[in-house]
Design a binder for these strands. Sequence first.
DNA 1: TACAATCTCTACCAATCTGGTAGAGATTTA
DNA 2: TAAATCTCTACCAGATTGGTAGAGATTGTA
Lengths: 152, 152
Amino acid sequence: MKLSKKSDYALRAMIYLSLNYQKGAVQIKEISAKERIPQKFLENILLTLRKVGILNSKMGLKGGYELARSPDLITLGDVIRALDGSIAPVNCVSQMSYKPCTEEVTCVIRGVMMDVRNAITDVLDTMTFADMCKRVKESLEKNENAILTYSI
Amino acid sequence: MKLSKKSDYALRAMIYLSLNYQKGAVQIKEISAKERIPQKFLENILLTLRKVGILNSKMGLKGGYELARSPDLITLGDVIRALDGSIAPVNCVSQMSYKPCTEEVTCVIRGVMMDVRNAITDVLDTMTFADMCKRVKESLEKNENAILTYSI
DNA sequence: TACAATCTCTACCAATCTGGTAGAGATTTA
DNA sequence: TAAATCTCTACCAGATTGGTAGAGATTGTA
């Protein structure tokens, strides 16, 4: 039941890009430096997010990445699914990578795991990056001399 | 966010033992055969559950395993924690293996992950093996000619 | 007592996943 | 044309997962 480093980095990069929404493309190098994420690793992550349509990219000099749509239309669930594949604790309750188990009808573990999955997605699929930005700003107001950070 | 095979097997074995609560010790071999779990692997799992006090064992001929307390006093969370270690998606929100992150106060990802963790434990720490037994029996009544099974 | 059945313990192993790196290529701006 | 940037494929070391092997300790029963 663990969030991968990949998803962790992805969430941080997405918050960074959300805070810079509509301010033009942001370069990998900048995100990598500010968030202290290995650059080459981050390249892969952003590429994945682009391929699933969460990010747009621009190649060449002055290129970079930006959100493909408004931060309030992207949820944490979207990002974690893109990187980690599935959110469900077992495949037989997964939307993304559903695979029936042998005796689905009578499987009582499945029932509980379905509840767990729903509980998780209730949180992750309603929380948008607009919400995250709001939280970052609130957090900064309360802790005036705090460094801007939202890493794990 | 995946339930390990170890925890899966453990849950199944625990349901089996719960259905046989107060009927004397049950042997590894029997559970292994009925639930189709590799015997040597199951040995390790049951040993772990004994070490954390969930199971009692009896060595020697006619030995075996049985629940150390009533099924309504053991939750799925107890078992999964014993096998997989932690339920929390990140260590900085874990009860079991808590490890602070760099900037805890202002970390907004932490906040969401805390919500996820609570959502998961709400399900797993309230569901007992007595509940699971009840579900197994209900399920069998509804599907009269179903085979008794609760594997994933 | 002997012995078979059973749990206990340590060690080991192959396959996969995780986190990360390398480097050549394509594209764009100045 | 050159520098900056994204794109793509390949690779790699270490950890984790799922599982096996085998010797040892303990107990019931003939």
